[in-house]
Design a protein around this nucleic acid. Sequence first.
DNA 1: GCCGTTTTCGGCCCGACTGTTTTCAGTCG
Length: 584
Amino acid sequence: MRNAILSAIFEQMADIMEILGEDPFRINSYRKVSRALSELPADVGVLLEDGRLAKTPGIGKSSLAKIREFVESGRVAAHEELLERIPPSLLELLHIPGMGPKGVKAVYEGLGVEGVGDLKKAIENGTLATLPGFGEKRAAAIARGIEFLEKSTGRIRLDQAMEAAEMVVACLHELPGVERIEPAGSLRRRAETIGDIDILVAASRGSGKSETSPGQIIESFTQASFVERVLAAGDTKGSAIIQTETTPVQVDVRVVPAESFGAALQYFTGSKQHNVRLREIAVKGKLKLNEYGLFDGDTQLAGATEEEIYERLGLDPVAPLLREDRGEIEAARAHALPELVRIKDIRGDFHMHTVASDGRNGIEEMAEAARQRGYAFLCITDHSESSIVANGQSPKRLAKQIEQIRKIAAGLKGITLWAGAEVDIGADGSLDFDDKLLAELDYVVASIHSGMGSPREKVTMRTLKAMDNPYVSCIGHPTGRLLGQREAMDLDIAAVIEQAARTGTALEVNANPYRLDLKDVHCKRAVEAGVKLAIGTDAHSTAGLGLMHFGVATAGRGWATRDDVLNTLSPAKLKTWLRAKRPR
DNA sequence: GCCGTTTTCGGCCCGACTGTTTTCAGTCG
């Protein structure tokens, strides 16, 4: 928690300094510190003690002193001094599209505007438009920005973003002259939530009369029926707001010539931080990297493919999933990038429900759907008794279901069907079923479904205790978050990972796009600790099995290889792994 | 403020689009 608070403090200091017009490079270094703090592997206090914080890139002497001050006194004097120089409500204006630090400073000094309410009034009574540097159009754009901010619920889930992107791709890919079209940005990196959607188009340069010019491609996009509002439409770039099921989202379409497609794809895939690092490497080599290619003066050295750009910079090609500046550049230079787990490595699914609890399909249907996916195994894991709303099974019902599963399994060819359960972890860390019944199961995923708002000590204790049980194979959706709906539990993830490693318990990567739990950075820490990941779709129907790719992407973003993921094992090897924790 | 097999000082990523600019600043990604 302290990490997040400190990260926010540095971010806010950067925002205030930006409004005050201070040195941009200094401001940038504050933002780097903020980001470094948000991604630390453990509590700042611990890292400060053992000296790891001082070695963290981006955190220098001056920031270290501020962090130490915070750890010791709970405050940062420099932060408090900055807060005295502007009204804090001014900072909310920075989030309005079309308002930047200069604009905020101008409305504050010129009109006495101190917050969104004041700004709205200044737009309505026309005074904003009279301010130097503003005007009717800009005032109107800012009014729309405020409206967007109020309507938008923020970032959208990965599955929503993919659906929206497919709609735009379908609209553009039939146009003559469009050679390739590819979603880029955080969507291509499979980030857990998406702020805006980037679509990249390669247009042929041919002069044929039937060809479409880049400007016409942009026009086709901005005039599409799903577009709610056009933000910009130039010769090579267009931005528009489109509506999704829950919230408006911004889509940017960019058109580049085919010979630059790789460079543009690299550029627009990001992340911003990853790209900044690459361009710094280019500059050190007296080169220039932009969306058109890698250049030595006017000579293009690379640009058609992403791979050649990385290679000309002395790096192994980096998978989009890893491009977050979380160590992948150093690994690429040292030829030490992990070979990430892929969807085709997946041989089965660990987590699914049937009509026995709250699923929509029966055991045979799930098995058949798994077989059609080419799987070698599947585990049926219906809810246990405590999950009353999910129609959880009593010990008696489970015992009967195990018999039923054995019978069906015996008649199946080419796929191994296992009996499992998703067992509730109680308030005291006990499980719904006794060990005797659990021992009858091939696979047990233990999950918390209640008391998620309990204090850190409690939710952590419950999870650790469940792992002590020799029949618990895996902890299901360990943090319990629902993206956009419910915060993660305040779980001591470091303690959970340590216990998982010690007890030989797997941690789930729940593939449901609402969950993605463990999340990417937690997966990475689990992998580093040698903990196995079990990807489960938590399917409640045969269609739900198709969510697997979201889990694979999340594990990949956590640097997981085949060896880190239990789903890649053959049924025989898996059986051996599962038995290892159990009493002989 | 941070950082260094070209530097302990002097750099610090790059380009498109818009509006109000009569030649470019601000914003965005």
